[in-house]
């Protein structure tokens, strides 16, 4: 089997009420590509956006590319591979403004142009970039003032945990 091509897509907007997320998932299933929903954040107020991030992979890159092209119509675009932004922890155990709670799937972060694996531990987590340059997922309660956290979603790639796949 050829190595699977992995692409992470994201869609934002009123994707629940518009049934756009349902349409995207139905479309992925119709193409018989593998997928995993990495993250869904539901807007709380009526004018809040919801966001979903989904990993897609398939051994047939032509099939995957055709799917990706169709999903663009629904506003589901590949996540842009920008570098991360960071924010500094001001108080032990307290997530600073713009800090970001992560779920606990395997992840990599793009830091200074390099994708770094993120070591995993516990729940209620956030990513810290250590002075050594390593990325670590730690519990918010373990944060120390001065820690450098990854802010937001840019430059964060969530890797799927199910299915058969290989990375180039």
């Amino acid at each position: 089997m050829q190595p699977a091509q992995l692409t992470v897509i994201e869609l934002t907007g009123h994707i629940i009420d518009s049934l756009t997320l349902a349409k995207v998932i139905d479309t992925i299933q119709a193409h018989q590509c593998e997928y995993q929903i990495n993250d869904i954040r539901i807007g709380r107020e009526k004018n809040d956006f919801s966001t979903a991030q989904i990993s897609l992979w398939d051994g047939d890159s032509a099939k995957l590319n055709a799917l990706l092209e169709q999903l663009k119509t629904y506003g589901a675009n590949p996540v842009e591979e920008t570098d991360i932004e960071t924010v500094t922890c001001q108080q032990d155990g307290i997530l600073p403004p713009n800090g970001y709670i992560r779920f606990n799937p395997p992840m990599e972060v793009k830091h200074q142009g390099q994708w770094l694996p993120v070591a995993r531990e516990g729940q209620d987590l956030t990513i810290v970039i250590e002075p050594s340059g390593k990325a670590r997922l730690i519990q918010v309660s373990a944060l120390k003032a001065g820690d450098r956290l990854v802010a937001g979603k840019n430059g964060v790639k969530v890797l799927p945990t199910v299915g058969e796949m290989a990375y180039a």
Binding site: H14, D17, S18, K23, T73
Partner: peptide, 21 residues
């Protein structure tokens, strides 16, 4: 119209948008 532009409506007016293909 691109569906992404619907986000501009909400951002600029505060109105929720139901996107219809």
């Amino acid at each position: 119209t691109d569906i992404i532009s619907h986000q501009v409506i909400t951002r600029e007016t505060g109105l929720p948008v139901l996107s219809m293909e």
